[in-house]
Computed example of a mutant assay.
Amino acid sequence: MRKLLILTFLCPFWIYNGFGQKLYSVDYENQADIKVFVVQYENQADLKVFKVDYENQASGNEGRWFFTKYPNQAKKKIFFVKYENQADLKIFFVNYQNQSGWRNRSKMHLLF
């Protein structure tokens, strides 16, 4: 009984960590789940993104993105728009993993 109680408590954390940010960049806007614009300055972004090299590094919803080779491997398909006002999400690419994260948490739902 005690083990069951502990598993019940820990299960939501396992589920949350299972939601990685595996993305595929599509060629056409109508194929995308989310439209993204890359801003020039960090303070303009909703999300600061770090591109990881391996799929298992993209756990959680904290801006660590892994770009898949095929659309069926991705959790979300994104399209990079040319103009800021066309975007659902504004991002800024950072150089280090510990710099990634949300600046505007109201848009977190876009990547769940």
Rank of each mutant, 00 (worst) to 15 (best):
R2G: 10
K3M: 12
L7Y: 11
F9K: 03
C11Y: 12
P12R: 12
F13C: 10
Y16T: 10
N17L: 08
G18K: 07
F19Y: 14
F19H: 11
Q21K: 01
V26N: 09
D27R: 14
D27I: 02
A32Y: 04
D33W: 06
D33A: 10
K35H: 14
K35R: 13
K35N: 11
Q40L: 09
Q40M: 07
Y41N: 13
N43H: 14
N43D: 13
Q44R: 06
Q44H: 12
Q44I: 04
L47Q: 05
V49K: 01
F50R: 04
K51Q: 13
K51W: 10
V52H: 07
Y54T: 03
Y54D: 09
E55Q: 13
N56G: 03
Q57H: 06
S59E: 11
S59K: 14
N61Y: 05
N61P: 00
R64L: 15
R64G: 01
W65T: 01
T68V: 10
Y70D: 11
Y70A: 07
P71C: 04
N72V: 02
Q73S: 10
Q73D: 14
K75M: 07
K76H: 14
K77A: 02
I78S: 00
F80Y: 15
V81N: 01
E84Y: 04
A87W: 04
D88S: 08
D88I: 05
K90V: 07
K90E: 08
I91P: 00
F92M: 06
F93R: 00
V94P: 08
V94N: 06
Y96A: 06
Y96D: 09
Q97H: 02
Q97C: 00
Q97E: 15
N98I: 10
Q99L: 10
G101N: 03
G101H: 11
G101D: 03
W102T: 01
R103L: 15
R105S: 12
S106W: 04
S106V: 08
M108T: 10
M108I: 11
M108Q: 15
M108P: 00
M108K: 14
H109M: 02
L111A: 02
L111W: 07
F112A: 08
